[in-house]
């Protein structure tokens, strides 16, 4: 990096530094989607999808370089703070998601929308099951039924999140 930096002209350096805001785009999208799930809508069943998790998944498939597991972890900490869950639940789950998608795509390559949707469906089921174990580890009683209801809603929210992240990528990251 330092050699690159030394070889640049002043104008290039300036544009290089100012273009760093691109790194913030995926994280900001995830954060905004998490804030969206704190809307003052109280429903009898937890049918509000875990949009932050889906957004981490989508960004890891779109821009693996801009959504490393450590960033997913930091975003998960913010999600925990916003939703009032014990610190570390979403953080661990987001980091595991980013890591899984990375390894999966390295091994099996990039896929079409339908296939990714199926993978996300299975992942959201795993998200519920692993999430329950993490909550038990944190000493919180966690019945499985609400988590599974939320997993179904999460799987259904995939096209919506792809729409948003795709639009953001076209506008800001190209």
């Amino acid at each position: 990096m330092s050699t690159d930096y030394r070889l640049r002209s002043a104008a290039d350096r300036f544009s290089w530094v100012t273009s760093a805001w691109r790194w913030l785009v995926p994280g900001t999208t995830v954060l905004l989607l998490v804030v969206l799930t704190t809307a003052p809508i109280i429903l009898p069943w937890p049918v509000l999808p875990a949009l932050g998790f889906v957004a981490v998944f989508v960004w890891t498939t779109f821009q693996p370089g801009l959504m490393p597991p450590w960033l997913a972890f930091v975003l998960g900490l913010a999600a925990d703070a916003l939703t009032g869950a014990p610190f570390g639940v979403s953080a661990t789950l987001y980091a595991l998601t980013a890591l899984f998608v990375r390894l999966f795509e390295r091994r099996f390559g990039h896929h079409r929308f339908g296939f990714d949707w199926v993978v996300l469906g299975l992942l959201s089921l795993a998200y519920a099951l692993v999430g329950q174990q993490l909550l038990v580890l944190a000493g919180v009683e966690a019945p499985l039924t609400p988590l599974l209801v939320q997993a179904a809603a999460t799987a259904l929210s995939y096209p919506f999140v792809v729409l948003i992240c795709g639009r953001v990528q076209r506008r800001l990251l190209r």
Binding site: P86, F87, A138, V140
Partner: peptide
């Protein structure tokens, strides 16, 4: 780094188990 953050996450969960009040300042903010 990935392994480290996941281990750190599990550590945070153990902290939450021992002291559920941990981090309540951040949640309040």
């Amino acid at each position: 780094l990935s392994g480290a953050v996941i281990a750190f996450g599990l550590l945070l969960l153990l902290v939450a188990r021992v002291n559920p009040e941990a981090g309540s300042r951040i949640r309040e903010a």
